[in-house]
Amino acid sequence: MRWVTFDCYGTLVDWRHGLLTSMELIAPGRGAGLLETYLRHELAVEEKSPSMRYREVLAQALRRACAEERVQLNADDASVLATTLPYWPVFPEVGAELSALRAAGWRLALLTNCDRDLIAETRRRLPVAFDAVVTAEDAGAYKPAPAHFELFGDSYEPEVWVHVAQGYHHDMLPAHRLGLPRVWINRLGEHPSGEQVVEHVRPDLTNLLDTVRAAQRPWPRPAGG
């Protein structure tokens, strides 16, 4: 029972490209600035309303970002992010690298800050099948809260478990707190301040199988779990 869990958007799917393209539809020439404001508001909405469906998080954060940036947003355009999300592009190396993991005997799972219906649409575009999915809708919370990880561990009881994600705040920090081996896909060349919690860093998923093999160790299942 060897598992590799992934965040989806940002790690497997080009989340920033999808957001930016969508924001350019409603604010031509201003998408980049709107995106940075949006990211701050999305995190705040998730923290304040952990039970809110992700499609509403997307809409609420976009409304707030547009208000701050003085961008006119028509009422029926607030759903643009949820509408376009199923079409956001998959990174080009995903198919080969996840296929190599599966061929080597690893099971694959998604731990995503998303709704069941939205991730179902994205899974149709992913080139490799996944054995399990835990959504924010299932967990009743958004990462970096530990609920996704706890629900996955309780449900599948992995013997070896490596978590792979682009998000430092949303994924690397909670994985570190839970003692999970972790691989940071640092696609944006970030340099986080404070405690460094990353064990293995890759610029993308290339040669991921070798990195996962280097990271793997038995999962220290919590006492009484």
Score class of each variant (00 low, 15 high):
Trp3Gly: 04
Trp3Lys: 04
Val4Arg: 06
Thr5Arg: 09
Thr5Ile: 07
Phe6Met: 13
Tyr9Leu: 14
Gly10Tyr: 05
Leu20Ala: 13
Thr21Tyr: 00
Arg30Thr: 00
Gly31Asp: 10
Gly31Ile: 09
Gly33Leu: 00
Leu34His: 09
Tyr38Asp: 03
Tyr38Pro: 04
Arg40Ser: 14
Arg40Tyr: 14
His41Asn: 13
Glu42Gly: 06
Glu42Ser: 08
Ala44His: 13
Ala44Met: 00
Val45Leu: 07
Val45Phe: 04
Glu47Gln: 14
Glu47Tyr: 06
Pro50Val: 02
Pro50Glu: 02
Pro50Gln: 09
Arg55Ile: 01
Arg55Val: 04
Val57Ile: 00
Val57Tyr: 03
Gln60Val: 12
Leu62Phe: 04
Arg63Ala: 14
Ala65His: 05
Glu68Val: 01
Leu73His: 01
Asn74Thr: 04
Ala75Trp: 06
Asp76Ser: 01
Asp76Thr: 01
Asp77Arg: 05
Asp77Lys: 06
Thr83Cys: 02
Thr84Val: 03
Thr84Ala: 02
Leu85Lys: 02
Pro86Phe: 00
Trp88Ile: 06
Trp88Met: 01
Glu93Ala: 08
Val94Asp: 13
Val94Thr: 13
Val94Glu: 11
Ala96Trp: 08
Ser99Gly: 15
Ala100Pro: 12
Leu101Val: 05
Gly105Ile: 00
Ala109Trp: 02
Leu111Trp: 07
Thr112Trp: 11
Arg116Pro: 09
Ile119Asn: 05
Arg123Trp: 05
Arg124Ser: 15
Val128Lys: 08
Ala129Cys: 03
Phe130Pro: 00
Phe130Trp: 02
Phe130Leu: 01
Asp131Ala: 01
Ala132Arg: 03
Val133Leu: 04
Val134His: 00
Thr135Asp: 12
Thr135Ile: 06
Ala136Val: 03
Glu137Ala: 07
Gly140Lys: 05
Gly140Gln: 02
Gly140Asp: 10
Lys143Phe: 08
Ala145Gly: 08
Ala145His: 10
Ala145Asn: 10
His148Trp: 05
Leu151Met: 13
Phe152Arg: 07
Gly153Ser: 10
Gly153Glu: 14
Pro158Asp: 10
Val160Ser: 14
Val160His: 12
Trp161Thr: 01
Val162Ile: 11
Val164Gln: 03
Val164Arg: 06
Gly167Met: 08
Asp171Phe: 07
Asp171Ala: 03
Ala175Pro: 08
His176Thr: 00
Leu178Phe: 06
Gly179Phe: 03
Leu180Val: 05
Val183Tyr: 04
Ile185Gly: 03
Leu188Met: 10
Pro192Lys: 03
Ser193His: 12
Glu195Gly: 12
Gln196Gly: 15
Val201Pro: 07
Leu208Ala: 07
Leu209Tyr: 08
Leu209Asp: 14
Leu209Phe: 12
Asp210Ala: 15
Thr211Asn: 09
Val212Leu: 03
Arg213Pro: 08
Arg213Ala: 15
Ala214Ile: 15
Ala215Thr: 00
Ala215Glu: 00
Arg217Ile: 12
Pro218Cys: 07
Pro220Cys: 07
Gly224Tyr: 13
Gly225Glu: 15
